[in-house]
């Protein structure tokens, strides 16, 4: 098995290649450069691992939530790569990968993942960590951090939310961006457990536009 994992739901453009004897990953931080950086990173990972595109057996993409434009770049890259090679593609909620990395930093307790949703909002979800593994307790959502229920703000928090709103999140964790390698591990685990992993982008917001009917109603 050789898994190509891609995440572009945050400012980090992250690619990983995971196989029995392969552990390649490459990341670039550039909030506006997903389109430019991603494909060269994929090629670089393949080259450094001395693998051909045809050696990849599975593709995994982070389905967000994340700023739409960057998120789509990763998802379409994963979908098309898998289609071109005739291999399966799996979707994993990007917040889950941050939660797994965060679990290594905390004991058995609840934690929050909060990422930059722009417009003074965060994408977030609540998790329970247990023995380094996590279980999601709430569906991913997008909100103003001030409007999150009080106890959540006091929980250990991963993602860039605490960097953007240091006055609100009391316990920031040093886990900021999604790592594609974690995404790959999660996908392999779920694959073995027979969990379905559809690739559905988590937009969580409607497009900003009114239909002509909506404009007519005051």
């Amino acid at each position: 098995m050789l898994v190509l994992a891609i995440d572009t739901s945050t400012s980090a453009i992250s690619v990983a290649l995971r196989g029995d004897d392969v552990q390649e990953s490459a990341t670039v931080l550039d909030a506006r450069g997903h389109t430019e950086h991603l494909a060269p990173l994929v090629r670089r990972c393949l080259d450094s691992a001395a693998r051909e595109p045809g050696d990849v057996t599975d593709v995994v993409v982070g389905t967000g939530p994340g700023p739409f434009t960057g998120l789509r770049v990763g998802i379409v890259t994963g979908l098309v790569f898998a289609h071109a090679r005739g291999i399966p593609v799996h979707g994993v909620c990007s917040l889950d990968a941050l939660a797994v990395d965060a679990a290594a930093e905390v004991g058995d307790e609840e934690l929050v993942v909060a990422t930059d949703a722009r417009r003074r909002e965060v994408y977030w979800a609540r998790y329970a960590a247990h023995g380094g593994r996590v279980r999601r307790l709430s569906d991913p959502a997008v909100d103003r951090p001030r409007e999150l229920p009080e106890p959540l703000l006091g929980l250990p928090t991963a993602g860039r939310g605490p960097l953007l709103f240091p006055e609100l999140f009391a316990r920031p964790l040093p886990v900021h961006d999604v790592r594609a390698s974690t995404l790959a591990e999660l996908a392999v685990e779920r694959l073995r457990a027979g969990v379905a992993m559809p690739v559905e982008p988590l937009y969580l917001r409607r497009p900003d536009a009114l239909t002509t009917a909506e404009r007519a109603t005051p």
Partner: peptide, 20 residues
């Protein structure tokens, strides 16, 4: 349209990499 172009450009790059 910037966001629309990016979907096609990313798809094309992925195709080029996957097919060599």
């Amino acid at each position: 349209l910037a966001g629309a172009l990016m979907v096609g450009v990313a798809a094309a790059k992925s195709l080029a990499v996957a097919l060599g």
